[in-house]
C-alpha cells in the first residue's frame, strides 16, 4: 500500500515534468507583445468610484474607456456605495464621481465645510424618484396611477409583512426616502415595508409582472430595469419648490434630480486632460440606457459596451475631448 502510494507520487511528478518539457518548447513568451502605454505620462491616473447601479456603471464604462483609449490615462475603478465614496474625497481614495443624486447634506459637508470636493457640472441625465406599479396593474386598474385612489386598492396590496394594510415596498437603505412621511401626510392606509436592497425590489417587480401579483414600490429612473419592464409611475401631488422643506410634513412628490458630477479638489486643481474630460462629459437618459442595456441584458463587459457605444457616437465623444 505504502509502496503504491509513493509510486503514484513519483508517477505524478514524472508526468508533470514530461508535460512541462513538451509544452514548454513552444508558445509565446511573456512580454513579446507588450505595448507601451501611450502618453501615459501627461494624463496620469485617477480613481473613479463606481456606485452600485448599472446606470452608473454605464457612465463609468464610457468615461474610463475614453480616458484610457484617447487620453492614455490609467483609470482605477472602485466599487463603492455613495456615502463611502464621498468619504473617499477626503482621503484621496476617490477622485471622480460621475453621477450624484442630490445629497445636499453631503455636499455641504465635503464641499463647503471640509473643502475636499468640488462640483463638476451636470451629467445630463435626469433622475426621477417615485412610486411605481407593474404594467399589468396600470392596464387593469387605470385610475390607480392617481395617488388619491390608492386607498381604494389598499386591500390588493396586503402581504404577510404589511399587518393588514396595503404594502408600499421601499428599497436600498442608501436611497433617501420620504415614504413614511408621505403615507402619513397623504392619509394612506399603507405600511412602508423595507425590502432592504435594490435586488429585492427588482426581483419583486419581475415576479409581480410574471405572476400578476399586485405590487406598489419605490423606484427610480434611469434604471436598466426599464429596458426589461416599463414600470408605471404613480402621480403624487406635484412637487413645488420648498414643499419638501420640513421632512416630517412632506406631502408632495419627489423633486426631479439633475444628476451631477463631483470631483475631488485635488483632482480639479491639478487640471489635466482627465479633468477636462470629466467636466465636459454629458449625455442623455437614452445614451445611458443604451449602454446600461448592453451591460445588464446583453451581458457585455463594461469595456466592450463602451467601445460599441463610443464607435457609434464618435461626434459626441469628440465634443467631450474638446475636438
Amino acid at each position: 500500500m505504502k509502496k503504491l502510494r509513493y509510486a503514484t507520487a513519483q508517477w505524478a511528478i514524472g508526468l508533470t515534468a514530461a508535460a512541462l518539457a513538451l509544452a514548454g518548447c513552444g508558445g509565446a513568451k511573456v512580454g513579446d507583445e507588450q505595448k507601451p502605454a501611450a502618453g501615459g505620462k501627461e494624463c496620469g491616473s485617477f480613481n473613479l468610484t463606481v456606485s452600485p447601479w448599472v446606470g452608473y456603471e454605464a457612465n463609468a464604462a464610457v468615461v474610463a474607456y475614453v480616458a484610457t483609449k484617447d487620453l492614455g490615462c490609467k483609470v482605477v475603478k472602485k466599487n463603492l456605495k455613495e456615502e463611502i465614496a464621498w468619504q473617499g474625497f477626503g482621503t484621496g481614495e476617490v477622485d471622480v464621481n460621475l453621477e450624484n443624486w442630490g445629497h445636499e447634506d453631503l455636499k455641504k459637508k465635503y464641499i463647503e465645510t471640509d473643502k475636499v470636493a468640488v462640483e463638476a457640472g451636470s451629467t445630463g441625465v435626469n433622475g426621477v424618484i417615485g412610486w411605481y406599479v407593474p404594467p399589468w396593474m396600470a392596464a387593469k386598474y387605470p385610475d390607480i396611477t392617481d395617488s388619491k385612489n390608492l386607498n381604494k386598492y389598499a386591500d390588493l396590496f396586503k402581504t404577510s409583512e404589511s399587518g393588514g394594510k396595503g404594502q408600499l415596498l421601499d428599497g436600498d437603505p442608501s436611497y433617501v426616502t420620504n415614504d413614511e412621511a408621505l403615507v402619513k401626510n397623504l392619509g394612506l392606509n399603507y405600511k412602508v415595508v423595507q425590502s432592504g436592497s435594490e435586488t429585492a425590489l427588482i426581483q419583486a417587480f419581475r415576479d409581480a409582472e410574471k405572476t400578476k401579483k399586485p405590487l406598489l414600490a419605490y423606484f427610480y429612473e434611469p434604471q436598466w430595469f426599464f429596458n426589461e419592464l416599463k414600470l408605471v409611475k404613480i402621480n403624487l401631488p406635484a412637487y413645488k419648490a420648498g414643499c419638501d422643506a420640513d421632512p416630517a410634513k412632506i406631502a408632495c412628490d419627489y423633486p426631479p434630480y439633475d444628476l451631477d458630477k463631483i470631483v475631488s479638489k485635488k483632482f480639479a486643481d491639478a487640471g489635466g486632460p482627465a479633468y477636462d474630460l470629466v467636466k465636459n462629459f454629458k449625455w442623455t437618459n437614452e445614451d445611458q440606457n443604451a449602454v446600461a442595456r448592453m451591460i445588464a441584458v446583453d451581458k457585455l463587459t463594461p469595456d466592450a459596451a463602451a467601445e460599441k457605444w463610443v464607435n457609434a457616437n464618435r461626434a459626441k465623444v469628440d465634443t467631450w475631448l474638446g475636438k
Binding site: K81, E83, L106, E161, S174, V193, Q194, G196, A200
Partner: peptide, 22 residues
C-alpha cells in the same frame, strides 16, 4: 436578512452603513 425584507435591526444596521445621518 435586512437586505431581503426582514427590516428591524438588520435594516437599521444596513441603513447606518449607507446613510451618514443614521
Amino acid at each position: 436578512g435586512g437586505l431581503v425584507g426582514a427590516g428591524a435591526l438588520g435594516y437599521d444596521v444596513a441603513a447606518g452603513f449607507a446613510q451618514s445621518e443614521l
